[in-house]
Design a protein around this nucleic acid. Structure first.
Length: 753
DNA sequence: ATTCGGGTCGTTTTT
DNA sequence: CGACCCGAAT
């Protein structure tokens, strides 16, 4: 039991108190993850609990993976058998087994936000409502909010308060949309994210035997980031723990920053009421930050009324004062951040990865990125467009989804005419209408297309159905990887991408390859018993970009404060400390909103271990308008004893000589990419027939000014040649297609001399 | 089937 | 300002 010696008394108490309801209030940097992992290890080691009986729920896959990894190194492979994952993934797994009891197929699809929005759009359109009033986002968040509070569409329509709300917002038919939305999801054999939790509640409510089974299976239930749970999640946990009462929640009310998506801070503030014999442990010693930073953070959060009393302290050294930096503009702010990182890194022998720049809104990253790039500092952006949201990935996944669950409407709409097979919107509409009019499953209609569509469209859909049937046979016989490969090839999707030799096209092709690799890895992983495509799809539906292998490159991290939770860095910059930006003007409707912004500021400051910088700009552009910015009220709230106003770096300042030279190659420090412009090729010109004698030339000696022929884009003139790493890129101006940049190692070009 | 022009709107984000 | 959506025009 050596590991217990590594813990301080409250941590140890939190680990050893395994029986009965426990709430661990864990201040920032107080070793929360360590306590959680040791607690699980302790259950297995000291108490002899079967890992199979321990359920731990987290908020991100990353947190779950990290914890699993740490337990494994503590306990060994036994740890594999504990149930650990996000609320959504754990209950998706359970629903997969039990869904038929509530009328869903066991191979149900999970709709992501895009699918949900697209479905809402169709419904609003079909109801002939104004989509400017019933905006997808608004409608979805309203429905989502209801589901998170366990309000079914029936209850929604009956509730007079809800009704009054919707009418006041000039959206009286919201209840109807909710009903139709649920109906369509059901008929598509699909659940959205909120349904995974909502339906688990339904399952446990209506099927006592099922609830009983899981209540007895999970003798110990643990919830991480408890301050971020919504009602739906909380009730599931409560039900599961009702028999053994071994429920342990870990959280920090001071870091509750997700109210806007249904998290209810009252869950943590009122937890005691639900469990009168609750044992509360407070972890108040901070191991992460300097005294200065801890004091500053405390001075902010103390202003909040709604909070659990605790005093976070540290025995770490005082450290440097927080630097408050005033910049004249957002670009200067970026420059100051970049030069400061550059100097600090060299003076203190730090790595890029020791630095983070945090902002309130994603759009603020631009100025910072520009400045970092100019100084050739490597950076990465966390968040932004996810891998799984890329069009090419969603397309292939839609094929796989439809093969597995051939009533999935959103998947159907995505692939029925991509690659093009002459089935336009009208035909698609006819198919869907037919399905609803005759109350037939979508797949029935597709299989009998000629009955519903005339002429060419009918036979095209027929061919499509034949193809899908071939896929289904493949899926039944082969594992996920082989089936996915088959689908990617036979659908024509891979070929479509392969033929596009532009940089963006290559990226898309590589992305698809990467997805296929991920499937291969999934199949090869002995931990995954079910190697079918269906099983893989279920796994991947709940992944986000943050879960993918992060590159090992040493880079400065840029992200929003929200996504910084749980992380730590030696030096942290919080930029954009201006009134109305942070705290955000849009957010500030009530005292609660101000308090949430304050907690957000608390989260930001407590990411820093050694040094914290707060910066603001006096002018900033927003929506094309020049703003005059006042320093944020938060700057006034921070204990002034912890701050020094940095005159040295404010105002205009010379950059170090080495940085000043013009024409430094900018691009190499650039890892993150927020948005890739799609290459737009005018369709009439798509088909260039290569000359009969077309043979790709050796492009090793390709020069500017030379004339070339491309099999797809036709004739063009080389504008310039660049070297990027091992690759050479040629920018070529084509007769009809304009400028394209091609990678020479891939492009097939014929040199015309 | 695509493209272009006009109009709108603009947090935070996980699953 | 600029991204996105939609409808009119090709």
């Amino acid at each position: 039991m050596d590991y217990l010696k590594e813990l301080n008394p409250p941590q140890r108490e939190a680990v050893e108190r395994t029986e009965g309801p426990v709430m661990i209030i864990a201040g920032a940097g107080s070793g929360k993850t360590r306590v959680l992992t040791y607690r699980i290890a302790h259950l297995i080691y000291a108490r002899g609990v079967d890992p199979f009986q321990i359920l731990s729920l987290t908020f991100t896959n990353k947190a779950a993976a990290e914890m699993k990894h740490r337990i494994e190194s503590l306990v060994g492979l036994d740890a594999r058998n504990t149930w650990m994952g996000t609320f959504h993934s754990v209950f998706a797994k359970i629903l997969r087994v039990e869904s038929e009891k509530i009328g869903y197929p066991s191979n149900f699809t999970i709709y992501d936000t895009d699918d949900s929005k697209s479905l809402i759009r169709s419904i609003v359109k079909e109801m002939r409502l104004d989509d400017k009033v019933y905006k997808q986002g608004v409608v979805l968040s309203r429905i989502s909010g209801a589901k998170n509070r366990l309000i079914s569409w029936q209850a929604y329509q009956k509730d007079p308060f809800v009704k009054a709300d919707d009418e006041a917002a000039m959206r009286p038919r919201m209840g109807e949309i909710y009903q139709k939305y649920q109906d369509r999801l059901f008929k598509s054999g699909a659940m959205d994210f909120d349904d995974l939790l909502f339906n688990t509640n339904v399952l446990f409510r209506d099927h006592a035997d099922v609830l009983n089974k899981y209540q007895h299976r999970f003798k110990y239930v643990m919830v991480d980031e408890f301050q971020d749970t919504n009602l739906s999640q909380y009730l599931i946990t409560k039900k599961l723990a009702a028999v053994h009462q071994n429920i342990c929640v870990v959280g920090d009310d001071a870091q509750s920053i997700y109210a806007f998506r249904g998290a209810d801070i009252q869950n943590i503030l009122n937890f005691e009421k639900d469990y009168p014999d609750l044992f509360v442990v407070k972890l108040e010693q901070n191991y992460r930050s300097t005294k200065t930073i801890v004091e500053a953070a405390n001075s902010i959060i103390d202003k909040n009324k709604a909070q659990l009393k605790k005093t976070v302290w540290t025995s770490n050294p005082d450290g440097d004062l927080i630097e408050l930096i005033k910049a004249t503009s957002d670009n200067e702010e970026g420059r100051i951040v970049a030069t400061t990182i550059f100097e600090e890194r060299n003076n203190k022998k730090l790595n890029n990865s020791d630095f983070a720049v945090l902002y309130r809104t994603n759009s603020q990253s631009r100025a910072i990125e520009e400045a970092l790039r100019k100084m050739n500092l490597t950076y990465k952006i966390v968040g932004g467009l996810s891998f799984y949201q890329r069009k090419e990935i969603k397309d292939l996944m839609a094929y796989m989804r439809f093969t597995v669950n051939s009533v999935d409407e959103e998947a159907f709409k995505r692939i029925i005419n991509y690659p093009k097979r002459g089935i336009g919107d009208t035909s698609v509409e006819k198919i869907l209408v037919a399905a609803y009019d005759h109350d037939m499953p979508l797949w029935e209609v597709v299989q009998n297309a000629p009955n519903f569509l005339s002429g060419r469209a009918g036979s095209s859909v027929d061919d499509f159905a034949t193809m899908i049937k071939a896929f289904q046979i493949e899926v039944e016989r082969k594992d996920a990887f082989e089936a996915a490969n088959f689908i990617a090839k036979q659908s024509g999707l891979l070929r479509e991408l392969y033929e596009d030799k532009t940089i963006e096209g290559l990226n898309r092709y590589e992305n698809v390859q990467e997805l296929l690799n991920a499937i291969k890895e999934y199949v090869d992983n002995p931990e995954n018993e079910d190697k079918s495509l269906g099983a893989f799809l279920q796994e991947i539906a709940l992944l986000t970009d943050n879960d993918r292998d992060k590159d090992t490159t040493d880079a400065i991290t840029l992200m929003t404060i929200h996504s910084s939770k749980g992380l730590e860095f030696k030096q942290v910059f919080v930029v954009g400390m201006e009134e109305d930006l942070f705290p955000s003007q849009m957010m500030m409707q009530s005292r609660e909103d101000l308090e949430e912004e304050r907690r957000l500021f608390y989260v930001a400051t407590t990411r820093a271990m050694d040094k914290l910088y707060l910066t603001y700009a006096l002018t900033r552009y927003r929506f094309g308008r020049l703003l005059n910015c006042e320093p944020s009220r938060f700057l006034e709230e921070v204990d002034p004893a912890t701050i020094k106003v940095n005159k040295r770096m404010s105002a205009t300042r010379e950059m170090p000589g080495a940085m000043r030279q013009e024409g430094l190659p900018g691009g190499s420090g650039f890892i993150g990419l927020k948005k890739k412009p799609e290459s737009r090729v005018p369709s009439q010109m798509k088909i260039h027939t290569p000359s009969p004698d077309f043979k790709p030339s050796n492009t090793n000696n390709l020069q500017a000014e030379q004339l070339v022929e491309h099999p797809k884009f036709g004739f063009g003139k080389v504008e310039k040649i660049e070297v990027e790493g091992l690759n050479r890129k040629a920018t070529i101006k084509f007769e009809h297609f304009g400028e394209k940049t091609l990678l020479l190692s891939f492009a097939k070009l014929r040199i015309i001399d």
